[in-house]
Design a binder for these strands. Sequence first.
DNA 1: CGATATTAGTTCGATATCGAATTAAAAGGG
DNA 2: CCCTTTTAATTCGATATCGAACTAATATCG
Lengths: 151, 151
Amino acid sequence: MPEKLDEHQGKLFELFNEIGIIQQLGRAFFEERLPDGMVLPHFSVLNHLTRVGEGRTPVQIARAFQVPKNSLTHTLAGLEARGLIEMRPNPKDKRSKTVWLTDAGRAFRAETMALVSADMVPVLPEMEPDDVVRTLGFLRHLRETMDRARD
Amino acid sequence: MPEKLDEHQGKLFELFNEIGIIQQLGRAFFEERLPDGMVLPHFSVLNHLTRVGEGRTPVQIARAFQVPKNSLTHTLAGLEARGLIEMRPNPKDKRSKTVWLTDAGRAFRAETMALVSADMVPVLPEMEPDDVVRTLGFLRHLRETMDRARD
DNA sequence: CGATATTAGTTCGATATCGAATTAAAAGGG
DNA sequence: CCCTTTTAATTCGATATCGAACTAATATCG
């Protein structure tokens, strides 16, 4: 039954399509609420360090976001120029660096989070918590599968 | 119970996070298989015209993808320069244009689709069709909600 | 109708993003 | 140990992306 397979594949394409559009909506939503020259990846790095822990290396962060590492170099440079992060040498590896939040970075992340959260409230009641959790689970599985298939 | 609300909101943040990463993975996956200077949005426009119908205007397409219209101007210029689409005046509105696929554009889209589909086959068995459909449904709802909240 | 507001598309300048090449350090294998 | 390979980060050049300002055409409303 090759039609079944095609249909399955078609749905997956639609899923990617939808994901792209939502990503775009989310990016715009965030960036409207970020100061002047800041973009979503700037905030994402601050958030990542808060959630996963400071002292990560640039490659680790790049892998987590699945972006090329030179793209991250640029993002980190922007954050450092704004005094939101600090780069320190990596004691385990002289080629490498580690990334740390400054107090300003922590404060900025918290403020932005509060700001965006407030504006997100109207959306929440529309989203069934169970659906959110289930979707999250599936998307993680999808990501892991794609990641594995990347080789 | 404000903790419940915060938790719900936290899950939604994680969802956006995951969506961003998958979008990135999908983009890379596509662009590895696209010729030289072509990027995902180029393909997306060809695909959109095939699925939704030709003769769309740039603003319609921009709205469908939730990107600024000047970004689309640039994408369309690239496609036109490669002879994959054709711009015609809009008989209903002298400010506007309509976008049409050329034969080369149709052929290119089909070839790329086949190429990407083939490489996507290993991922398919990992994805429960029911889960894909359910996720798709939820994401559509999420998009519509965000779109409505955009005002 | 005529004035004003809105809409379609482009242009411009600034920044983001990426692939490819580069440098420096670490790892691995004879 | 050297030699080769891999890895971390940066640099460079090219293109993508976006906000803001602009032009031309259409819609709205008195």
